[in-house]
Design a protein around this nucleic acid. Structure first.
Lengths: 129, 129
DNA sequence: GTGACCGTACTAGTCCGATAGGACGGTTCC
DNA sequence: GGAACCGTCCTATCGGACTAGTACGGTCAC
């Protein structure tokens, strides 16, 4: 479980951590019952404060994505993948929709926009290889 | 020139203003020589502080999108549409690319992603009508 | 010239999130 | 039992961005 933080991004670090965990769960790279990195460990690795990681975990627990076992660690909850996948679909549809709207506002044609997406997908697919 | 601010968005209000002006210039809804809303007027309309609008205008001036005529107002610069269109294309390609990557990470298939985009474009096109 | 605008500049204050550091109790394993 | 973890909680502090209020000089129409 590798998590990268971009300190210059407009979204706060704790949100970035939570988002990456959600995506990993939705994508099956974190499975139910699996243990997340410890608060201190992840804080050291991602160069943020332990409190910041703790806040992200608290948020994930609140929404039911993870379950913390006091004194032991934080674990992916049962049923989390389905929920995360559904939520991710909604969020991404929203993001893609906004981007598409902005692209239209900027004067790009629908054809150009679909081409941009197709190209992104191809290069992303290559990156995964 | 209508500008909407979402106070809950992660991007600061001044950035939102600058972004919307750039998109409007790129899309031809603001043309070279046209005058932007006054700092005070836009601040009142968008429910933000005049300083916040002034900061956005200063940023736009720095990058050459607008030109301020002291005592008179702020005007869209010559050559701005081309530059904005080019910049918008880059930014949007980046945004779409990130969203596509995240969607892949969340376990969506490329086909599903293209469908999502196509659907967004259709609904966006209807909205414009 | 006068008044109504315009953008700019400045200082001070507020708010929110991240950071820092320490203390606490629970769990796991030897 | 004891050491080494674990997550949690708390208080204090810092920094960035927005807000608030005021003052200044330039432009424009009458």
């Amino acid at each position: 479980m590798r998590i990268e933080i971009d300190p210059r991004a407009p979204t706060p670090p704790s949100e970035q951590i939570a988002d990456q965990v959600r995506l990993a769960v939705a994508g099956g790279r974190l499975t139910p019952g699996e243990r997340l990195p410890s608060v201190r460990g992840l804080a050291t690795q991602a160069l943020v404060n332990p409190n910041t990681v703790a806040r992200a975990y608290r948020e994930l627990e609140r929404e039911g994505t993870v379950q913390t076992r006091p004194g032991s660690g934080v674990y992916v909850a049962r049923g989390a993948p389905g929920r995360c996948r559904k939520a991710a679909r909604g969020v991404l549809a929203e993001r893609l929709g906004r981007a598409a709207l902005d692209a239209l506002a900027a004067g790009l044609s629908p054809q150009e926009i679909e081409q941009l997406v197709a190209r992104s997908l191809r290069s992303a697919a290559e990156e995964v290889l």
